[in-house]
Design a protein around this nucleic acid. Structure first.
Length: 315
DNA sequence: TTCTCCGCGTTTGGACGGTC
DNA sequence: GACCGTCCAAACGCGGAGAA
């Protein structure tokens, strides 16, 4: 698999700040460069980090002025975010933080690169994964043209393994940073939901379908159903989300995602090879064998590695 | 390589009419 | 009256061509 997945801590999705498209792409690039510093350890010492970006990756025309103003705008923004700190069997502790995201822009005239500093507190913002993280493809996220598409892409990736999610419309507005915008539901529907839906369906590896629910004559909830696309040549092919979810969740038992991304990589490869249905049936039988005691977990891992994954063209 | 500028697409809000 | 859908217009942002 050639796709470049990046991890994004979940508190970034819920952080309160508004960004332009270019600013969002800068954030993705920062995340991509800080991947090695990602940690679940709250006591990890984060230091100020220098991030260097190739101008061309942010702007085809290497428009330095535009990029500079986006970074200056980011530097002027204070982000408010909450960290979920695991607290044993008790509910997570919530730690509130405020920080600026970048500082110290540096650019050598005629250079291909631009660099700036990410303060230590902002490094924690970008790297602390103790409250969970979402994995998505950086190139897809950057290529999405609207801010809402990017946001919804992140949400789809976050909930893809569960096949969907539902939330109150007010909560959705907060997630999209549009508490005071699109007050008319039809505006919200066409401009935030449907435009993003079309874009994701066309060019992302996951997309969503949604239903608005009414209570007492007023729309109150949104239910999202998440589906998969497999990229073939220049086209996307839709994948049965129920088969994909089952296959992914099965593999996740043997290749847990806190260790590495093999469950996702294998699931994508199986879908790409058009073997999802075969995998769905096969894994179903293995699950039965495990439940009835015919096979142990170790037997299944050995079988997967030695035979089944090869047959399903996952490796 | 950098910058300016134009055109187009996106975002946003308001007005108005229809439905419950 | 409250809520929703459609239409319209203005503001804004972005992509790309071309000049400096």
């Amino acid at each position: 698999m050639k796709e470049k997945y990046i991890k994004q801590p979940n508190h970034i999705i819920t952080a309160r700040f508004t960004l332009s498209n270019l600013e969002k792409n800068i954030i993705y690039t920062i995340l991509s460069q800080l991947q090695k510093s990602m940690s679940k350890d709250l006591n990890q010492k984060y230091v100020e980090s220098e991030v260097t970006i190739k101008l061309k990756t942010l702007d085809k025309n290497r428009n330095y002025k535009r990029i500079k103003s986006a970074i200056k705008s980011l530097a002027g923004k204070q982000v408010e975010f909450e960290l979920n700190i695991p607290n044993g069997k008790k509910p997570d502790k919530i730690q509130a933080n405020v920080t600026s995201l970048v500082s110290g822009l540096k650019y050598e005239r005629n250079s291909e690169f631009i660099s700036f500093m990410v303060p230590s507190q902002a490094s924690r913002f970008f790297c602390y994964t103790g409250g969970g993280y979402t994995k998505f493809q950086k190139t897809i996220a950057i290529s999405l043209t609207s801010y809402y598409s990017k946001r919804l892409y992140e949400l789809c990736c976050r909930w893809a393994d569960r096949g969907g999610f539902d939330c109150k419309i007010e909560e959705f507005r907060r997630l999209m940073s549009i508490e005071n915008k699109y007050k008319q539901i039809s505006h919200l529907r066409t401009r935030v939901l449907e435009d993003s839906q079309k874009q994701l369906e066309k060019s992302a590896d996951v997309f969503f379908k949604y239903t608005l629910k009414k209570e007492g004559g007023k729309y109150t909830d949104i239910v999202f159903k998440i589906h998969r696309n497999i990229h073939i040549g220049k086209k996307n092919r839709q994948v049965r989300s129920d088969y994909y979810s089952f296959v992914y969740n099965f593999l996740n038992q043997y290749f847990p995602r806190y260790l590495d991304d093999r469950a996702q990589v294998y699931s994508d490869s199986i879908a790409y090879a058009d073997e999802l249905y075969t995998a769905y049936k096969r894994f179903g039988r293995l699950d039965d064998d495990l439940t009835t005691g015919k096979k142990t977990k170790k037997d299944i891992i050995n079988l997967l590695n030695a035979v089944i994954l090869k047959e399903l063209k996952a490796i």
